[in-house]
Design a protein around this nucleic acid. Structure first.
Lengths: 205, 205
DNA sequence: TCACCAAGTCACCTGTAAGTGACATTTTTT
DNA sequence: AAAAAATGTCACTTACAGGTGACTTGGTGA
């Protein structure tokens, strides 16, 4: 029985992450975390407080909602089509790999609380950045500007949904969202759609 | 204390629907239903069985996952663009109005069980019908055919996600998904995107 | 060395959900 | 009218979650 506060905290965080990845947030509880960590639950209360406090600390520890800009390091930033595609597909691919971030997204759909709102606010500011730069660069009519916002909302939402849904279903609208090959198809479609969208945006109306 | 089995069953169904609409599926329990219905829980066990049996019976009662074809009664079915738009926006609008169906969708994202799989299978067959007819009508190359599947997957998923997300957040990617005017914008974007997509589909090679 | 505090353990309380057995009362059947 | 079946009530067990108080043990500084 070694006594090591930091070690114990780490055990608690590890257990938290493991349980979130496995069962999501809605099944998470103090008892479960304590059991998984092999630690008495009193220590969780002492070090973190109630469950929301633990979650807050856990969230602050990791980097679960990346800046989309991180995905476009090695592509031509002046090419809006390529940039858009890279950001969208990069985000989807990130989510597909990172199960905890995925569960955060799932949680956001179910519950509204201080934490989910904070996370969403960060992401909202990220999301608007891309559409703003598209609108600025292309000097669009107001109708087309609206289309940029709502189309990108639909596309990014679609990718979110497909990633989340792939946990509970294999085929969606004829696409095998559980496999890499299915996601290649989705990327193909995404590219096609983005091209089509910019074609129409840039067409002189 | 009237004795009326059918009346009691109805009370139980009503309570079930009310609780689902309010709190979703993951918070649903026998005790809560019994309390809400003002009925002893023993009767639930006697008439329906365990919770999944109750839910199954409840689902069989109502019509919560409509056939998309229902939305296109009064539009030209030979016009693929119009038909696609009508189906997509009709489905989104339906979901926005029907809170129980919405909660079923939310449930599907969280849990995989006999019921959610059954429901999803029905919808999957509905969804594939539209894309099949598009592919047949336009005689597309295989690459474009893939795009049809995956693009429609992304679009319909995007609408699902936005409807679900609107319960827990107001602004998404610059669009106010909690208001009707925001949904008008989304429909505008949807129309724009579908047009752009068909333009590119129909362009030679 | 001793005293003190932090780290960890244990036992307990409360509340609530799931599920069941036994009973009482009303309705239906014979 | 008596028996049988159905409807509804009550009380109970089991299990488990959240949460707290009191204790023990180890490390550290005076």
């Amino acid at each position: 029985m070694e006594r090591n506060k930091e070690e114990t905290k780490k055990k608690i965080f590890d257990a938290t992450g493991k349980l979130i990845a496995k069962n999501g947030f809605h099944a998470l509880g103090i008892n479960a975390v304590a059991r998984e960590a092999g630690v008495d639950k009193v220590l969780i209360y002492r070090y973190f407080g109630k469950l929301p406090d633990l979650l807050k600390a856990f969230m602050d520890e990791g980097n679960f909602w990346p800046d989309p800009e991180d995905f476009i390091t090695d592509c031509d930033k002046t090419n809006l089509r390529e940039t858009s595609f890279t950001i969208f597909s990069g985000y989807a691919s990130f989510l597909r790999k990172n199960s905890i971030s995925r569960e955060i997204f799932r949680w956001e759909i179910i519950e509204r609380n201080e934490l989910t709102e904070m996370i969403a606010a960060v992401r909202e500011s990220h999301g608007v950045r891309l559409t703003e730069s598209i609108k600025k660069t292309l000097e669009l009519s107001s109708e087309k500007a609206i289309a940029v916002d709502s189309v990108s909302a639909i596309i990014i939402s679609g990718l979110y949904y497909l990633v989340l849904r792939s946990k509970t279903v294999d085929m969606f609208s004829g696409v095998d969202i559980s496999s890499d090959s299915g996601w290649n198809e989705i990327n193909t479609g995404l590219k096609f759609m983005i091209d089509a969208f910019f074609d129409k945006l840039e067409a002189k109306s």
